[in-house]
């Protein structure tokens, strides 16, 4: 019954996502929502390595930028067709992730985070300073829109919305596959503690590296979508504040849960949008809310719900068995 409820919930979300363009008042809403989806996709990746595997990667936005610039540079400077460049965005990020992971994952806990913070900043600097490759602070302008696939064209906000939505759904489905499998359990065992995981026969380096590469693959993919959607890139997208934003989505929605990044990534942008009139002061309101949340709801909305449901189900005569 519980499984069925979860399935029903996901189907409802899917339907909501499909009909949203018909409910949205204007193109602006569609654009806000599509951008949110792109960041949710990236956050799914961050959640895999941080929420499920316990390694907090502060360079995540840097990898998203790598994916975005892969598409930007290839399409604008080398006239590579959009979809070929797009297909490369994830793998390029993952390949870079392999080399960075193999070094950084030797470090544990905070040391790993501090190291990746530096990596993220270096990625930002490389993008900003390597002008012959990245156009530096000028940025990359005039990235072509995703070219039509057969009868499907991507020149309207609505079409782009569905394109982004499609990749979010696929990304979620694959993530569901991963985290509910033995592989996901392996990652979670590592999050629980290196020593215990290792004594259970889990090869730490190999599995951490796999989680890391998968995670930055998501970031690269999201970056590729971003390039095709926004069609303008600046070094700013590599900034660590974007990683912090994604962290916030995870924390609010529920770190280490599948739905958490979705919920957080969709609600937080809308909340900050509505607090727009407070201008710079909006973080005076939002900051304390976040602090309270982390103290009192440490597992986020989804995490708390799951724990509550599990407790109910474990009670011998609970009504959870309905």
């Amino acid at each position: 019954m519980m499984r069925l409820n979860a399935k029903l919930g996901w189907i409802m979300l899917l339907v909501l996502g499909l009909v949203f363009p018909f409910l949205a008042g204007n193109d602006y809403h569609l654009t806000v929502m599509s951008t949110a989806y792109i960041y949710v996709l990236a956050t799914l990746g961050l959640n895999l390595v941080t929420g499920y595997t316990g390694q907090y990667n502060l360079a995540h936005a840097g990898f998203m930028a790598v994916g975005a610039y892969t598409v930007g540079i290839l399409t604008v400077d080398y006239q590579v067709p959009f979809w070929i460049a797009f297909v490369l965005a994830g793998p390029v990020a993952a390949l870079l992730g392999f080399f960075i992971g193999i070094v950084s994952l030797r470090l544990k806990g905070h040391y790993f985070s501090i190291f990746t913070l530096c990596v993220g900043y270096i990625l930002f600097l490389v993008i900003e300073k390597w002008e012959s490759l990245t156009h530096g602070t000028v940025g990359i302008i005039g990235i072509p829109a995703p070219s039509p696939i057969g009868p499907l064209t991507f020149d309207s906000p609505r079409a782009l919305y569905y394109l982004v939505f499609f990749f979010l759904v696929v990304g979620l489905w694959v993530m569901h596959r991963i985290v509910s499998s033995l592989l996901g359990r392996t990652f979670m065992a590592i999050r629980n503690g290196d020593d215990l995981a290792e004594s259970l026969g889990i090869n730490l380096m190999r599995n951490k590296l796999l989680a890391f590469m998968l995670s930055v693959f998501y970031a690269g993919l999201a970056g590729g979508l971003y390039a095709g959607f926004v069609r303008f890139l600046g070094p700013g997208i590599a900034g660590v504040e974007h990683t912090f934003d994604m962290t916030m989505y995870m924390l609010v929605g529920g770190i280490g849960t599948l739905l958490g990044p979705v919920l957080g990534g969709l609600t937080v942008p809308w909340i900050t949008q509505t607090l727009q009139w407070l201008q710079e002061y909006r973080f005076l309101v939002f900051g304390p809310i976040l602090v309270l949340l982390v103290i009192f709801v440490p597992h986020g909305i989804v995490g708390s719900f799951i724990a509550w449901r599990a407790r109910k189900a474990a009670q011998p005569h609970g009504s959870g068995h309905a």
Partner: peptide
């Protein structure tokens, strides 16, 4: 945050081969 059983399933992971 997980059930006792869920905590234990990974225990036999080292005897399995499934990958990505």
């Amino acid at each position: 945050q997980a059930s006792v059983l869920d905590n234990l399933i990974v225990g036999h992971r080292l005897r399995t081969k499934s990958g990505l």
